[in-house]
Design a protein around this nucleic acid. Sequence first.
DNA 1: GAATTTACGTCAGCCTTGTTGACTTTCCAA
DNA 2: TTGGAAAGTCAACAAGGCTGACGTAAATTC
Lengths: 164, 164
Amino acid sequence: MAETPGGENLLFLTDEQLRKGIEAMFFAYRGFTADPDRILEGMDYGRAHHRAIHFIHRSPGTTVSNLLLILGVTKQSLNRVLRTLIEDGLVRSEKGKVDARERHLHLTDKGQMLERELSDAQRARMRAAYRAAGPQAVQGFRQVLEAMMDPEMRRQYNRLKEGG
Amino acid sequence: MAETPGGENLLFLTDEQLRKGIEAMFFAYRGFTADPDRILEGMDYGRAHHRAIHFIHRSPGTTVSNLLLILGVTKQSLNRVLRTLIEDGLVRSEKGKVDARERHLHLTDKGQMLERELSDAQRARMRAAYRAAGPQAVQGFRQVLEAMMDPEMRRQYNRLKEGG
DNA sequence: GAATTTACGTCAGCCTTGTTGACTTTCCAA
DNA sequence: TTGGAAAGTCAACAAGGCTGACGTAAATTC
């Protein structure tokens, strides 16, 4: 057994173990997005629309700039997505009352319906995985993912995680 | 505490917990790809090239069709990536001796160098995350990811995980 | 009150990476 | 031996990233 001065077993840090983790991330992410992708295909929407819908649902009334921070794309790119969602009546955009430069975004009833369909599918897979692995594993899962984020993303994540 | 007939606590399966897991996947995957993306930008390559290089390194001599199975894209899409890698002398493609329709793929020395650079970066982040979370967490991480894969992907993953 | 900055929208054009369709070469089995 | 399947290539298109430039309204600063 490989032991350190501290006494812990470090076999879980071998290149081989790390490679397995890398490949697990790759294959699992495919599963993670598979169900929503399937629902969206055929509609005129894609993964980018799903992300926008998710975070608008998550933080109703959020502004465009805030969404830009979270999604990490350019405003031109986000705008294209948002425009189609607004035109199609899934998202409502309203001028800020305190700062009229801002646009506050909400899902319409129609938007809520699609959000529900997408997140039901994604949660179903997540729930099955969680149930199969058990609570202990889930805790570890979340710990490793959190440690893998860029610090700035971790801030975004934790902000969302608690408040709203 | 929410208890089932079986007696286990199921609080880890609430929609709220699942949502946190979903967002953790989203933000963590960004971190996961960030370092290789940074290295690739400026070169003429992208994430698709990285994936091809990774799995050719992983299974030297693999065929195009085998790579297609693993990557889950169309052969036309893979072909474009492969063509540039071959033209640039990172990948060597040789006609199969037993079946001349097949092309067997290998990294050249130049290809090995780039692979090394990319995987060093990705492993470094993975290692930091693993170390921060600890061996117990890593085990849970792997369990949940594996449970999240599509069955077919899980087969691919396990085939790679053990043999070569 | 004028100048600057901020938030947002938009046009144009580019790149990567996915897609389908049509095609050749090669192998194999009926 | 021939016809179908498998492996790979070429062409064209779409989604969704990107940069750069510009416009407008509102807020902030000087």
